[in-house]
């Protein structure tokens, strides 16, 4: 069963195409992350769902109710969809309590009790209720914005890069807190972000957008290990890409013979190896395939090595590795591959 269905959504601004033919479905209570570089159309997608803009073509259906189709759209205030914007968008002229109560229906019984319930839900101190938005830190403002959106008991929650303005440490904290709150409330969520790590850790469905098109959607694991193409692979994390010849369940490449995950294609292919699959072993008498470290960059817990492989005309491959027993430039090393490698579907 699906909560929200997007059918072939398209939107253009003048001659610039913001979105073309995007289709996606969201399950009740699920968490979806929409990732993409800036300008990929992810914020446009969110604004279409929220009702701030009308799609040029396509259909948006929420719980069987058509929200937008053929240039007609239900206005934002009738959709029952909550949104937390990048900087919270709190009303600067209202106290925190009034901000939270802003969306309550007129004459909501036990208004005060409901405000307290909401502020507790987002784990903020009750003493903040009398303050003004500018007296709060960025993270606290985000929590208030979340409480304000939850106050309407929305059918769906949209998060528009709500953590991007926060410090790294605080960001992770907030992400966990928000997941917890939304999970407890059982509200399906769509998070828009350009941070792939955030998307992978937050969501149970990730959708990758690029230049207005939906490249791939699936579980975080699926996308990370089996991206559709090179760009998707590199967007979701570091990767080593090598030409190879696939034969049955194995492939031969510059790193020797490796196991492949799904032997869909045979012959000349391109394989993708995640750096954490590669183990660097210092071995002066290593048989081929082996290589020589040409550059070492120490950066704390992990370090980056560039390794030139013997007998192939490829640029040195760059590997992030643990700084324990770090080889130095000039050392000969062997590269062991753990697990299966991924073959790109086409080309």
């Amino acid at each position: 069963m699906t909560l929200l269905t997007l059918d072939n959504l398209s939107k253009r601004y003048g001659s610039a195409v913001a979105l073309s033919d995007v289709s996606l479905s969201i399950a009740p209570g699920s968490r979806t992350a929409v990732v993409g570089p800036s300008g990929s159309g992810k914020t446009t997608l969110l604004r279409l769902i929220a009702g701030f803009e009308t799609p040029d073509a396509g259909r948006i259906v929420l719980k069987g109710e058509v929200l937008a189709q053929g240039g007609m759209a239900v206005p934002a205030h009738k959709r029952g969809i909550g949104i937390v914007a990048q900087d919270g968008a709190l009303f600067p002229h209202l106290s925190i309590a009034d901000n939270i109560a802003f969306g309550f229906e007129r004459g909501t019984p036990e208004r005060e009790a409901r405000i307290l319930e909401l502020i507790d839900m987002v784990e903020l101190d009750r003493g903040m209720l009398t303050r003004r938005p500018h007296q709060l830190s960025g993270g606290q403002q985000q929590r208030v914005a979340l409480a304000r959106a939850l106050g309407r008991r929305p059918r769906l929650m949209l998060l528009d890069e709500p953590f991007s303005a926060l410090d790294t440490g605080l960001r992770e904290n907030m992400r966990k807190a928000v997941s917890r709150v939304l999970e407890a409330a059982g509200i399906a969520t769509i998070l828009v972000t350009h941070d792939q790590a955030e998307a992978l850790s937050f969501a149970d469905q990730v959708a990758v957008l690029r230049a207005g098109k939906l490249v791939q959607a699936g579980t975080p694991r699926q996308l990370y290990l089996h991206p559709r193409d090179r760009e998707a692979a590199l967007f979701l994390g570091d990767a080593v890409l090598l030409p190879a010849i696939a034969r049955g369940n194995v492939a031969d490449c510059a790193l020797g013979r490796v196991a492949i995950a799904a032997p869909a294609r045979q012959g000349k292919v391109e394989i993708m190896i995640r750096p954490e699959q590669i183990r660097v072993v210092r071995d002066d008498a290593a048989p081929s395939p082996a290589g020589r470290v040409v550059e070492v960059e120490f950066s704390g817990a992990t370090s980056t090595l560039a390794v030139a492989l013997d007998g192939v005309a490829l640029p040195p491959i760059v590997i992030k590795t643990s700084s324990v027993a770090l080889p130095s430039a000039g050392d000969r090393v062997r590269l062991d591959i753990a697990g299966e490698v991924h073959i790109f579907g086409e080309g």
Partner: peptide, 8 residues
């Protein structure tokens, strides 16, 4: 936008 999403 926030006010509209809150039902106004």
């Amino acid at each position: 936008d926030a006010a509209a999403s809150l039902g106004l």
